[in-house]
Design a protein around this nucleic acid. Structure first.
Lengths: 228, 228
DNA sequence: TGTTTTGTGTGATTTATGTCACATATGGGC
DNA sequence: GCCCATATGTGACATAAATCACACAAAACA
């Protein structure tokens, strides 16, 4: 964490969450927003602790996870620039149910509880953005529950790859896949199992891997395996 | 489904979601809200279909579930009077990710998409209620993911019982537990396994069951088993 | 009230997946 | 380019939990 940097209204206007704000609202907000920088591997939030602020990621990536006693963890999601977190604790006053850990150095904006709640009440557009964001996360969570309850590890790996892939001129590619260890934590499996499944998917010519890149050769069959 | 019943402003005022509404807002709403009755086992919403309305349960209980091709299903949650569903589809225009099925005959209020969205924009209190409700559901979903990924079937059964139990003068009791088949679907396990685990919990004197009632004899140990 | 459906208990068996143990590879820093 | 920390591949093995196949019990209903 380095010394705080001044937050200008211009910076805030560039944040999707605040794009609907008037000039007054923005400058009012600017006075209480803080800049915070975290180094790689730092915990911004810890499960069980009170949440005192909303965090918006300006640069870098984080993982949201639930840890258990023996050091195992399940990764709920990964977030990057423009994403935000911490609003759940602000809305229901309960301690955070997850830990947020940086995957690389991160710049964040930190909006204290009251400032955020005031903004929320005064700005229906903000409320709608937050609402829609929660809906998206709830859908993702439900889908994860479906995967865990109804699909085997093979299917879960296939589904994750499909979900992460983006279509680059007709070809489905995961540009930078997480380490297999991380994949394992994302789908509730052991890293050894993920290793074996990926090997198998390659041997069956469903995917091709090259370092951290995964090319989906047979999207159809992959989707098949990853469906309930 | 029987013939529609007239919805009076008084009925709407009694719904927590609308308790903050002014008289005008309420009577405006009354004109577009419909009453719908469903018999036991009916599907109010089906996964994959468009959601055209918000439903509020006035009486009866429903289960929210994700089905797979072979007839298996995972139950995400059960809802009762005062609970609502369908708002996700209204907010992001995507098809429903889950099926909602009645567990018994249900009376519901149905608020069409536009009416609901209009209310939401015009009423910050309603927005906050919906927001907080989504937060609660997201927390529950995250907890379910944690259970599925990190805890074995023994622990998941114990945790579910603890979660369902209410403290009635010092004693933790589940007044009306779901059938073991349903429990199995709630925790992503087979009904045989749930049967064996419940038997074991009884033999260890951690719980006592009597028909559909479960008395938690050793809350401490139960919570222990159900923790990550 | 009997009859039918729905739910339950339990042993035997199979299977998917985790765990362990190790060699090997890879990727960041310096 | 070299070194150290991480990440990975893979065989052998252990085991939790699913599945199958019943008999039996309890609710629902007519």
């Amino acid at each position: 964490m380095t010394a705080p940097v001044a937050i200008t209204p211009a910076i805030l206007k560039a944040v999707p969450l605040f794009s609907s704000f008037s000039d007054e609202q923005t400058s009012l907000l600017a006075s209480c927003v803080q800049h915070r920088r975290y180094s790689k591997g730092a915990a911004i939030l810890r499960a069980g602790e009170e949440t005192e602020a909303l965090y918006i990621i300006m640069s870098g990536r984080v993982k949201v996870l639930i840890p258990d006693e023996e050091g195992r963890e399940v990764i709920l999601t990964m977030l990057g620039p423009q994403d935000f977190f911490g609003e759940m604790g602000l809305l229901d006053e309960l301690p955070s149910s997850a830990t947020v850990e940086t995957l690389e150095a991160c710049d964040t904006l930190r909006i204290p509880r009251t400032a955020f709640l005031t903004c929320l009440e005064g700005n229906a557009e903000l409320a709608m953005l937050v609402l829609r964001n929660l809906v998206k996360r709830l859908r993702d969570a439900d889908r994860k529950i479906e995967s865990l309850a109804l699909i085997d590890v093979y299917g879960r790996v296939a589904r994750l790859i499909i979900d992460m892939a983006e279509n680059i001129d007709g070809q489905w590619v995961v540009k930078r896949a997480p380490a297999k260890q991380e994949i394992a934590r994302m789908i509730g499996a052991s890293r050894e199992m993920v290793s074996r499944v990926v090997k198998d998917l390659q041997e069956k010519n469903l995917i091709h891997t090259d370092k951290r890149k995964i090319i989906v050769l047979d999207h159809q069959s992959m989707a098949q395996r990853g469906s309930v």
